[in-house]
Design a protein around this nucleic acid. Structure first.
Length: 463
RNA sequence: GGCGCGGUGGCAGAGUGGUCAUGCAGCGGACUGCAACUCCGUUAACGCCGGUUCGAUUCCGACCCGCGCCUCCA
C-alpha cells in the first residue's frame, strides 16, 4: 500500500487511483522564458522518481507535464531580446529538454503547450461565464469571480476575507472583487493575440492548466503536482476554475515539492543567487546533482551549497566504488534481492521516502564489499545487480562505473597521459624507487587524479 | 498581520513511545612500501519548559527560534 501526503488534507493518505492499476498525473511545468533553474530541477526530479516508482510498482502511469509558452514574462523577455516570442520559447524548450536529459529526467507521457489549447481554454471560459462563475469586464479581460465558488481557499487554507483585506493597492478597477483573477487578458496594441468572443487576447495563467489537465486526463484525476510556490494562487485557482466548470472534484491528491535554498538563503534573482541547471552542471556531474536532490525527501527544503554537493559526490563515489569491476548478475537470488526489495518498497511506499530507499543501496554496497573481500564473487555480483536495478528507480547508478570515475571535468590530463604516468609509477614501484613513485602519484593528485592500487593493478578516478 | 511547515550527533538526513537509521567527516585497528579503496571497531543527537505514561526525541500544551506562501516565481 502506497501512502502519499496530500496537501489538501495535510496528511498522508492511502493512495487509491480512480481506476485500479492506472495513475493519471499532471504536473505544472515550465514557463519558457529563461533557462531552468535548480527549483525546476527539484520538481522535475521529484516527479520523475515518483513516476518511476509507480511504474516499478506496475502502475500504468499517464504523466502530463505542461509547457507555458505564452505569458507576460515571455513577451517581455522576447521584447528585451529583440526576438520573436516563438523563437524565444523554441530555444528555451530545447534547452529544457537538454537539461532534463542530462539529469536523467524521463520525458512525460505528453507535454501539452498552452498555445495548442486555445480553443479548449476558450470553451472552458465560455462555460464558466454561462454558469455565472466568470464575467467579461469593460476592459476586455474576463475574470473569475472568486466569491461565487464556495470552496475557494480549501487547498491553501486561506479565507477569502483575509485575501481581500490583504490585497495590495492598485487592484484593477475592472475586477468586481480584488481576489478575482483573469481568465482571459485583452491584448494591447501590437501584442500577439488570439480571437475570442470577448475580443482579441490571450489566456490567463491559471486557466491553461485547468484546460490542459482536464482535456488530457479527464474532469477528475489522481495526482496534481508542482512547486511549493504554486500552491497559492495557481493551484487554488485551478481548483476553482475546474470544479466550477465541471461540477466534479478536480484532483484527488495534491503534491508539492519543497523549496530550494542557496547557502541557507532563499534562491532569488534579487539576491543574485539564482542558479540555472546548466550553470550547476558546469561545476558538478549531473548524477551528483541528482543524487543530492534525491538524498532528501521531496517535501523538505533543500539547501544548495558547495559543501552539500561535494558530500553528495563523495557518497555517490562510494556507491560506484562498490560496483566497480563487477559484472552484475542478471538473476539475483531471492535471498539477495528479497530483503533489499522489501526495505526499498517499505521506504518508497511511505510517501516516496527516497533517503530511506538510499539506505538500502548503501547496505547493498557494504554487502558487496564484504562479499568481495571474502571471495564470494557470485553473491557480490547478485547484490550489484539488485543495487543497479533499485538505483534505476531513483534514476541513479546507471552508468558504467569506469565511465563515471573517468568522466569528470576535474584536471586536464588526458586518459592516455594518466595511464602512461601510472605505468611509469608502477615501474618505479617494482624497482622499489618509492620516491619516484610517490612523486608521480603527487603529480597526478595535483591534477585531480586519485590512484587505487590493488592486486589486479592500479585503477584511477578523477576526484 | 493571516495561513502553513520545521527545529535530530561536527555536517547532511530518515525515523520511532522502551536494543541500530544511513551517509560524509573524526578517532582506533587491519590491509598497503607509504597511500587510496575496503573491512572491523568507535565517539556523538533529538530547541526550551511543563503534562500524559512504568517509560518520551517520538503524544499533548505553552514558549523560543528558523523557513515558506499571502505579488511574477518550481
Amino acid at each position: 500500500m502506497i501512502q502519499i501526503h496530500n496537501t489538501l488534507s495535510q496528511r498522508k493518505e492511502e493512495f487509491r487511483p480512480l481506476e485500479p492499476g492506472k495513475v493519471r498525473m499532471y504536473v505544472c511545468g515550465m514557463t519558457v522564458y529563461d533557462y531552468c533553474h535548480l527549483g525546476h530541477a527539484r520538481v522535475l526530479t521529484a516527479f520523475d522518481v515518483i513516476t518511476r516508482y509507480l511504474r516499478h510498482r506496475n502502475y500504468d502511469v499517464t504523466y502530463i507535464r505542461n509547457i507555458t509558452d505564452i505569458d507576460d514574462k515571455i513577451l517581455q523577455r522576447a521584447e528585451a531580446n529583440g526576438e520573436d516570442y516563438l523563437a524565444l520559447t523554441d530555444r528555451m524548450i530545447k534547452a529544457m529538454h537538454e537539461d532534463e536529459a542530462r539529469l536523467g529526467i524521463l520525458p512525460p507521457t505528453k507535454e501539452p503547450r498552452a498555445t495548442a489549447y486555445i480553443d479548449e481554454i476558450i470553451a472552458m471560459i465560455h462555460i464558466l461565464i454561462s454558469k455565472g462563475f466568470a464575467y467579461p469586464a469593460d476592459n476586455g479581460d474576463v475574470y473569475f469571480a472568486v466569491d461565487g465558488f464556495e470552496g475557494y481557499g480549501k487547498l491553501s487554507k486561506k479565507k477569502l476575507e483575509d485575501l481581500i483585506a490583504g490585497a495590495r493597492v492598485g487592484v484593477s478597477e475592472a475586477k468586481r472583487s480584488p481576489a478575482d483573477f483573469a481568465l482571459w487578458k485583452a491584448a494591447k496594441a501590437g501584442e500577439v493575440s488570439w480571437p475570442s468572443p470577448w475580443g482579441d487576447g490571450r489566456p490567463g495563467w491559471h486557466i491553461e492548466c485547468s484546460a490542459m489537465s482536464t482535456c488530457c486526463l479527464g474532469d477528475t484525476f489522481d495526482i496534481h503536482g508542482g512547486g511549493p510556490d504554486l500552491l497559492f494562487p495557481h493551484h487554488e485557482n485551478e481548483i476553482a476554475q475546474s470544479e466550477a466548470a465541471t461540477g466534479k472534484p478536480f484532483v484527488n491528491v495534491w503534491m508539492h515539492a519543497g523549496a530550494v535554498r542557496v547557502n541557507k538563503e532563499k534562491m532569488s534573482k534579487s539576491l543574485g543567487n539564482f542558479f540555472t541547471i546548466r550553470e550547476i552542471l558546469e561545476k558538478y556531474p549531473a548524477e551528483v546533482v541528482r543524487y543530492f536532490l534525491v538524498s532528501s525527501h521531496y517535501r523538505s527544503q533543500v539547501d544548495y551549497s558547495e559543501e552539500n554537493l561535494e558530500e553528495a559526490g563523495r557518497t555517490l563515489t562510494r556507491l560506484y566504488t562498490a560496483l566497480r569491476g563487477i559484472v552484475p548478475d542478471k538473476k539475483p537470488s531471492v535471498e539477495i534481492a528479497g530483503d533489499a526489495d522489501q526495505q526499498f518498497h517499505a521506504a518508497m511506499d511511505d510517501d516516496f521516502n527516497t533517503p530511506g530507499a538510499l539506505t538500502v543501496l548503501h547496505a547493498l554496497a557494504s554487502d558487496i564489499n564484504v562479499f568481495r573481500r571474502e571471495g564470494r564473487d557470485r553473491e557480490a555480483s547478485e547484490a550489484a545487480a539488485v543495487m543497479v536495478s533499485l538505483g534505476k528507480v531513483l534514476g541513479i547508478l546507471q552508468q558504467d562505473p569506469e565511465a563515471y570515475f573517468k568522466a569528470g571535468n576535474v584536471g586536464d590530463l588526458t586518459a592516455e597521459t594518466i595511464e602512461s604516468l601510472i605505468a611509469a609509477r608502477n615501474k618505479a614501484r617494482k624497482e622499489r624507487n618509492f620516491a619516484e613513485a610517490d612523486r608521480i602519484r603527487d603529480e597526478l593528485a595535483d591534477n585531480g587524479v586519485v590512484l587505487d592500487d590493488s592486486r589486479d593493478g592500479t585503477s584511477w578516478r578523477r576526484g
